[in-house]
């Protein structure tokens, strides 16, 4: 195999070269989109590393999920740690009929369901909370997300931060001041790790809509009877 053919491989990326070919889905936050060169990478795994829960990691995805739920694909939640609360999802503009919850009993089933969902091409986004450390499995998941052209979001705890990961994008989330969220890039395919942005995803009702610029903000978050 010569170098040219090697470079043709989709799973080979070159440092320092911003690839225009990567399709993205807007995160709904201007600052974050600028940091990510467009938004969440499509057909790839994104790892969101959080020191603990309750800092708003899920809220960060809501504008993009709302956007994706308007397509004919599932927003698939594999083994969520709690019940995704339907009223809050509706408020965030998500079409509930595209939500698919998968509750596998065994860990092995969870990984299987995760890979199937990523690979099938039927899911716009797949959310999971895997505790695994095995980078071989993560690599499989990354390839599955590529095959299914799916946005795969893995929520990971802080202890995973030092482990190498084949995910296309790794973000460190920290609680910011005033209820906001601080996001910094640990790894991405195109370009080097970059500085942090502070996002106001604060809890004041409607502030998420105010600060995001997806079409969600305009009409969808407001129920019709209001």
């Amino acid at each position: 195999m010569n170098l040219d053919t090697l470079l043709q491989r989709p799973d080979v990326w070159r440092g320092g070269q911003i690839s225009a070919a990567v399709k993205t889905v807007s995160s709904g936050f201007d600052e974050l989109d600028a940091l990510l060169a467009g938004g969440w990478p499509q057909g790839a795994l994104t790892e969101l590393i959080m020191p603990h829960q309750g800092i708003g990691g899920l809220r960060l995805l809501m504008p993009a999920l709302a956007q994706l739920s308007r397509d004919d694909r599932w927003i698939c939640w594999v083994a969520p740690p709690h019940i995704p609360y339907a009223p809050a999802l509706v408020s965030a503009g998500i079409d509930l009929s595209r939500v698919l919850l998968v509750h596998p009993r065994a860990r092995q089933d969870g990984l299987w369901a995760l890979e199937q969902s990523l690979r099938s091409g039927n899911c716009g986004a797949v959310l999971a909370w895997p505790t695994l450390e095995d980078s071989v499995i993560l690599r499989r998941l990354q390839l599955a997300a590529e095959a299914g052209n799916t946005l795969g979001f893995l929520f990971r705890s802080q202890r995973h931060v030092r482990r190498p990961s084949p995910a296309a994008l790794r973000l460190q989330l920290e609680p910011g001041t005033g209820g906001g969220l601080s996001v910094s890039i640990l790894k991405r395919r195109a370009g080097r790790a970059a500085g942090a942005v502070h996002l106001d995803t604060s809890l004041q009702h409607g502030s998420l809509a105010l600060h995001s610029r997806t079409p969600t903000a305009a009409g969808h978050t407001q129920p019709q009877w209001q």
Binding site: P87, V99, L101, H103, R105, D109
Partner: peptide, 22 residues
Amino acid sequence: QIDLLDRLRARLGDKAVQGLSA
């Protein structure tokens, strides 16, 4: 899409794969 849903349900059982209502 039907295939994914059916596949998940065939292996995990009907109750393990759900939608959500408000």
